[in-house]
Design a protein around this nucleic acid. Structure first.
Lengths: 347, 347
DNA sequence: TTGTAAGCGTTATCAC
DNA sequence: GTGATAACGCTTACAA
């Protein structure tokens, strides 16, 4: 910057002024400065600038794990709107470990980020942390799932409605013995999906045995083992609503392995609509939510706050769409399924 | 920091000294400072520190697209070793657009990052950029694929050997009409895989018609359309080596759609060994490379440089493993495949 | 309109 | 061993 000032024959302050349009610099000098900037390929130090301005152009993003197929899309969504507004993403994985989350939260603050987007880890309670950010004027928005007592901005999918619609679809096809394998119920998204499921079952006045609700982690292995449990029940379910697509994948594997067919013997619906659901056989029906949109919405919300939107906490809920593929079908006739139940009984 | 000094009754400099172990502070004061730090929950400003030290604890990571299933693993690998050494990742997507890459490269420098990990975009030539980083003492390592004229540190998979082994396996099974669908051949990884393929074919003295080599983008759609081309050839291939798993997925779809069976009519081997290859039907054989390891190795290399390793540019090449699943089988007998060829001919 | 200078939170170089 | 103090590169009153 010194060099530019020298090269353009102006003062340091003037350079800054043309850089930030913070004062009208008269024409001869102005172009000289601009040229000097070009000539030297100057880029302002984000560090110095951040230190002085008391905030940087970074947006902290805390997620459980990029490697989990649903999250990259939301990272990408956030990055896209952040980038186009001149912000950069600094990415932190927590592994669902809320002490690691805390470390990131604390350190991230020292970068004076423009904002924070958080997909909370298990059991996280970040009210105090968020408060300290808010006092520094830094927006924090939680997405996908909410920590306990969260009162700040949030963006989530309409989990309840999504689950409700999926379950209703199964019911309309004639299924009466419908089970669900949920994610960890301390996560709000898993809980809400279960609620939607329950409501649909209740409205249809269908019986819902406690064993028909299995809780596990949001992964393939969980879906696999819990499906084994479900299929051993008498009578076994003819349809399974999975808490997410990874679980649904496990369900599919377990069903196939037990000699049953999907969708003839067991219908499956997942949640998230991951790409890999299209290529399974049969392809997976799923409640589709846009991770990308989750990310863009969160980033947009953050930037709006930055630009002065001081309205009370927003809770944006994104629509879901039931994506029907080949993993659902009407149940076999009562007689047939009775036979199947008996057969399994003898094993 | 001021507050700490006051609370501990010492000078600012002393606080800095205990913080950085840059001078031995005697015991009574030392603990007082530490306690004050605890009491105030102090965290040093990474911004100020970076400005002063002339480098931050950030590592810039530039990749084409997190949303591409192979990259999250490498991001995660890099993040893990970076994090455990106190570094943070700042993530940039280029969309394979090398002008966007340039923007990131230029801006990232103003954060004074501790290092840079780059998966180059199409056609990128970052020798000049890298040079400017190197002059600032900042390490740059390229991974997965290399830009033209790259002479700096790199970490890649052994693409040639991987492709060679996959092709050899097909040959050993008895296939003689083996085609390949490559990624964009200006990318080094795509080119190397083709070379490995070629070498295996040549060694086995198998004929290789030019039409049996199809180039496309590294995605499902590319694999799909090029497979349609291949299957219309007379005679059609009985095995296809795909440049990566996304292409292989497209191959599988096209094969299935054309009424042929995999692996009976067409064997398929992909590259990368993505998770989604396990759940397709049939499950996908693939040349397995560890994206995670790619990431950790790159980060480690960077940190080694940081700690004074000034040896000449390293080119680390990671082993691949051929993962056999259900998408490969010996070809049908000559007669049968002749029949098939004739049948397709009539269409 | 333009220049001067203070200060952002650190680290590092010195005297003491 | 400890404490002033300059400097890192920038922004922003304020003075000219």
């Amino acid at each position: 910057m010194q060099e530019i000032a020298k090269l353009a024959g102006v003062s340091l302050g003037t350079v800054s002024h043309v850089l930030n349009n913070t004062a009208t610099v008269r024409e001869p000098r102005r172009t000289r400065v601009l040229q000097a900037i070009q000539a030297l390929g100057y880029q302002p130090s984000q560090l110095a600038r951040g230190l002085r301005r008391d905030h940087t152009n970074m947006i902290g993003m805390i997620i459980p794990d990029v490697t989990n197929p649903f999250f990259p899309a939301v990272v990408r969504g956030a990055e896209d709107v952040a980038f186009s507004s001149g912000y950069r993403l600094i990415l932190c994985n927590t592994d669902n470990d809320h002490s690691k989350e805390l470390i990131h939260l604390n350190e991230l603050r020292t970068y004076l980020p423009a904002g924070l987007i958080v997909i909370p880890s298990n059991f996280s309670d970040l009210t105090t942390q968020a408060e300290s950010y808010r006092q520094a004027g830094t927006g924090v928005v939680c997405i996908d799932r909410l920590p306990k007592n969260w009162s700040g901005d949030s963006v989530t999918a309409d989990n309840k409605a999504g689950a409700y619609n999926a379950t209703r679809h199964l019911i309309r096809l004639g299924h009466t013995r419908i089970a669900t394998i949920t994610g960890p119920l301390h996560l709000t998204n898993a809980k809400e999906r279960l609620e939607g499921f329950r409501r649909a079952m209740k409205e249809a006045k269908l019986p819902l045995a406690p064993e028909y609700i299995q809780e596990t982690r949001f992964d393939k292995q969980g879906g696999y083992s819990k499906t084994q449990v479900l299929l051993r029940l008498i009578p076994p379910p003819t349809a399974i609503f999975a808490g997410n697509d990874m679980i649904a994948l496990g369900v599919l594997l377990a069903v196939r392995e037990s000699g049953l067919r999907c969708p003839e013997d067991v219908s499956i619906i997942g949640f998230d609509d991951l790409d890999l659901g299209e290529t399974t056989n049969p392809s997976l029906s799923s409640v589709s939510q846009s991770g990308y949109q989750l990310g863009t919405t969160a980033a947009r919300l953050l930037l709006d706050r930055k630009e002065g939107d001081a309205s009370p906490a927003k809770h944006i809920v994104l629509e879901t769409v039931l994506k029907l593929r080949d993993s659902v079908a009407p149940p076999l006739s009562r007689e047939t399924s009775g036979t199947r139940a008996r057969r399994r009984n003898k094993e």
